[in-house]
Design a protein around this nucleic acid. Structure first.
Lengths: 209, 209
DNA sequence: TCCGAGATTGACTGATCAGTCAACCGTCGG
DNA sequence: CCGACGGTTGACTGATCAGTCAATCTCGGA
């Protein structure tokens, strides 16, 4: 199970996973063939089936690997002693930085899993919603301590926050261009500013409820 | 081209389109077969190819039909003499009502087109971005007249607004349950409240910048 | 009544691919 | 030096489906 490596010192399982990211990102999960993955990995077709039971298991593995990291990071950020607005900034920042560092992987996760309601999205619904729940938890605490209004449920706020982030990433994915550091930084600020600060010039109401 | 109907009085092209919505929503575009569409429409396999050049053209047709309606509605709403916040409410409301009235069609449009970066999303990028641009226009005008802050670009505000809506719909799509009127109404208000009012209890800053 | 155009049918073709499997290879312990 | 075992190979199989097409039907006009 763990890191099989022959004399050559190369973990072929890892090579296959990395190749799959490239191929899934380029052509999409459905449009690409298992032989594309094997070719990209410079490995024989059959080897993919030595390490994975199916093409789907390759995607599942990629998604879970990364999503678990995300869940841990969110929990860790939640644990910090920070104002809620900065917690959200840190979470949004982490996700957008992830895209900057590995656009292919994030593209695959978003396009093929997170937004694929008929296939993998449904399979991993539980995992995906864990992230929403964690974010909602942050909002709920902020409301309890009075730094966020109570006009909207924490669950909804989490949805809107994450939705805005994914929409930004989707825009980048469609564009296909590598993102400049400054653009990513601005997006991070814009997300928090929009969700926390709102668009209205005049505060809608001074009341906390 | 226009509404071919035989003595029976039934427009088979329409029947096929409606059947496709059901089938695409149930199994997804890639997973379903053309014969599923024909079966659902109670029509011979070949008839699908009499009216459409390919399976893809069926989806394209469904998307364009509905998206053009959306674009017209947004333009119409923009033309009304309403505060920007209410314009956004009307737009979000229209989209969410569309889901309530025809969840299958909206599911297909969102899952198979709007969020499919590798396939149809790319094909229809232009159309999709027209919607963003129209919304951004509303925000820009609101900023110019001083009712919205200038902290965020109109383009970004449009992205966040639409992203929040789509995320709500995606949640509904995953849930698979029909939505109650009250729930839809609350979602409309929550979207506008979050995007326009923001989560912060205290106004971030009084200055309009 | 007869004819032709368009609507409708569904068997068939050609291509594509996921997944299998039997053989091969390299390494390591004995 | 040998045997065995896990890693590695890639040709092959079986199934699936999009799209084609020639035959059949229906109906309105002459």
């Amino acid at each position: 199970m763990a890191t099989a490596r022959t004399g050559s010192g190369v973990d072929k399982r890892r090579v296959i996973l990395d190749a799959a990211v490239v191929v899934f990102a380029r052509r999409g999960f459905h449009a690409c063939r298992v032989s594309d993955i094997a070719d990209e990995a410079q490995v024989a077709y059959g080897l993919v089936y030595h390490y994975f039971r199916s093409k789907e298991e390759v995607l599942d593995t990629l998604f879970l690997e990364r999503w678990n990291v995300l869940l841990e990071v969110i929990s860790e950020i939640d644990g910090r002693d920070l104002p809620p607005r900065e917690k959200l900034y840190a979470i949004g920042g982490f996700i957008m930085d992830s895209y900057r560092h590995d656009p292919d992987l994030m593209k695959v996760i978003i396009v093929e899993v997170t937004r694929a309601a008929n296939t993998f999205g449904r399979t991993h619904l539980g995992k995906i919603r864990e992230a929403y729940a964690l974010i909602a938890e942050i909002v709920a605490k902020a409301q309890a301590e009075g730094s966020f209004k109570r006009k909207v449920t924490p669950q909804f706020a989490a949805l809107a926050f994450y939705g805005a982030i994914e929409q930004v990433l989707t825009g980048w994915i469609f564009d296909q261009q590598p993102r400049a550091e400054a653009e990513v930084e601005q997006a991070k600020q814009f997300v928090v500013e929009t969700i926390c600060g709102g668009l209205d010039a005049a505060p809608a109401s001074a009341a906390t409820v």
